[in-house]
């Protein structure tokens, strides 16, 4: 199969093929997040975080699943622990987040060194940007943690992980990527689909569970 002439033109002008693919995928991932929110009822940390974490996973390829989940969990874990460490100091918000980010940086450093020591160079070779993206995830986590407590923060982190993994499966699938490169106009479908999602007033799937008692009455 041949790439769409537009893609060939763009590539010919020197736009890297991976950039083209990712730009075409972004609307797809964003729509996926919107779908999860409006129809399924999974909130996650907004739309930015799950989308960007999806692409961070992609950047960890070919071991996106393993490293992605590992680093994600490490960030959340350090975020949790740092809350307990920092609580007695009663710090203002931004300095507190700064310390948490520093702690996560140290842990990442340790993980990379550890990986190198055990000849797991795949991790150490990863570019710094996906790592940084994952670290900034901590800000979202800490913000929710302060306002809504540990439970909600963990729940939203879990939901973010789920959406990002589904997004990752989608973006890293060569079939999907190929389809998008051959039929790039498909990306325009994101707009009508999102208009539909934006007008969707039905119950979300999780609401069927939440209101089960009322639904099953009589």
């Amino acid at each position: 199969m041949e790439y769409h002439p537009f893609i060939q033109f763009a590539a010919g002008e020197g736009v890297p093929m991976q950039t083209i693919a990712l730009l075409l995928m972004l609307p797809l991932v964003a729509t996926l997040v919107a779908f999860f929110r409006q129809v399924v009822g999974i909130k996650a940390f907004g739309i930015y975080t799950p989308s960007i974490v999806t692409f961070a996973f992609v950047a960890f390829d070919p071991k996106g699943f393993k490293y992605g989940i590992g680093i994600f969990l490490a960030v959340i874990f350090v975020g949790m622990v740092s809350r307990y460490i920092l609580k007695p100091f009663r710090l203002l918000y931004l300095p507190r987040v700064a310390i948490t980010l520093s702690l996560i940086s140290f842990v990442m450093f340790a993980i990379l060194i550890f990986g190198g020591y055990f000849q797991r160079t795949g991790l150490a070779a990863v570019s710094i940007f996906p790592l940084l993206i994952m670290i900034t995830l901590a800000e979202k986590f800490v913000a929710v943690q302060i306002e809504k407590g540990n439970r909600v923060a963990l729940l939203l982190a879990g939901e973010t992980l789920v959406i990002s993994l589904v997004g990752y499966a989608l973006v890293s699938s060569s079939a999907v990527t190929l389809t998008m490169l051959v039929y790039p106009w498909l990306v325009l479908l994101a707009i009508p689909v999102n208009i539909m999602l934006g007008k969707w007033t039905g119950l979300r799937l999780v609401e069927y569970v939440r209101f089960y008692k009322i639904l099953s009455k009589k």
């Binding site: 969707w200 039905g202 119950l203 069927y208 639904l215």
Partner: peptide
Amino acid sequence: ELLKKSGGILGMNARNLEY
């Protein structure tokens, strides 16, 4: 059957968009 019964309940989507 369940989907049809949802009419009675106000969900988050409908609350925000319609009310």
